Computed example of a mutant assay.
Amino acid sequence: MRAVICKEWGPPESLVVEDIPVPEPKKGQVRVAIHASSVNFPDVLIIQNKYQFKPELPFSPGSDLAGVVTAVGEGVTRFKVGDKVMGMTSWGAFAEEAIAEESRLDPLPEGVDFAIAAGFPMVYGTSYHALVDRGEVKAGQTVLVLGAAGGVGLAAVEIAKALGARVIAAASSAEKLAICKEHGADEVINYVEEDLREALKRVCPQGPDVIYDPVGGDLAEPAFRSIGWRGKFLVVGFAGGSIPKIPLNLPLLKNASIVGVFYGAYVKNEYQAYLKDMEVLFSWLREGKLKPRVSDRFTLDEAPSAIRRLADRKAAGKLIVEPQQG
């Protein structure tokens, strides 16, 4: 089978596509013929040895997948060969077939295609965990979403709206902000053309109740300086490339909280809670409250280019790799 392979730590251009042996599932594992896998920011980091999880070289990146079961390991009872599934694996999804733990897969919901399913678990799961569990967002609150046109950003916009919040979407271009509006944002801020703090004074004088930040970098501190009384600042990631150092007098002045969001560890350590999250998200998907956006599709050979596009923050919505195509 063919797979995208990381042989040495480096940028997306260092990845290669090669033939490798078809993997065999072990106890509790399932092998899936992958029809779609999505590109996530951890893929940018993991190939550079900058992510929390560090696989041994060589390996194939890619964590979200959707496809058809081709083999099951000892003890697997939830799935059989031929079942359509979606879910996550720590890495390995940029390949024609991959191994996933039975516990990290779900049946493909009726009427949901592979591309939509592959772009769903990580971004919506992360954003739901962040906003509901860590941020405790309530109806009527105001939520600021930074990097709002990205995969997790758009998911956060939709989930915050589903929770009854007022949503301010911040992104870097008029095109991206138009997409945020399509997905439910009430107010938008172009933080390239306008100072973020001044814009927030204009649209939310009292300050946001919750700030969702998957960007980090230079946006984090001005956003936090604008937070409302007893606000929560959700640290989701650092797509901006640098980890900010926020002065600790700032949370003191507003009785505000800086709250970490590490979705991978949450799934591992609180699996039953994760399952309940997925039940809610699937019901919202069926009801049309969530509308995942697939912005572009790539063949396996084009997967390094897809990772590069995400690394350069040129994506709006989800980038999908289709290993069975091309």
Rank of each mutant, 00 (worst) to 15 (best):
E270K: 14
I243D: 03
P244T: 06
N249H: 12
Y266D: 04
N255G: 15
Y271K: 13
V261L: 07
L253S: 15
L275M: 02
Y274F: 13
N269K: 03
N249I: 09
A256M: 06
N255R: 12
L248C: 04
L253F: 14
K268D: 08
E270F: 15
N269S: 09
Y271L: 09
K245P: 00
F262R: 06
F262Y: 13
Y271F: 15
E270G: 01
Q272T: 09
N255P: 08
A256H: 12
P244S: 10
Q272K: 11
L252M: 15
A256Q: 08
V267C: 00
I243M: 07
A265S: 13
A256Y: 09
E270H: 15
A273D: 12
L252F: 15
K268L: 10
Y266V: 00
N255C: 08
P244F: 05
P251H: 04
V267M: 02
Y271V: 05
L252E: 06
K254E: 09
K254P: 09
I258W: 03
Q272S: 12
N249Q: 08
N249D: 12
F262P: 01
K276D: 11
Q272L: 09
Y266F: 15
Y271N: 14
Y274S: 00
I246R: 02
A265K: 11
P247L: 04
P251N: 03
V261Y: 04
V267R: 03
V267L: 03
S257Y: 13
A256N: 10
G260S: 15
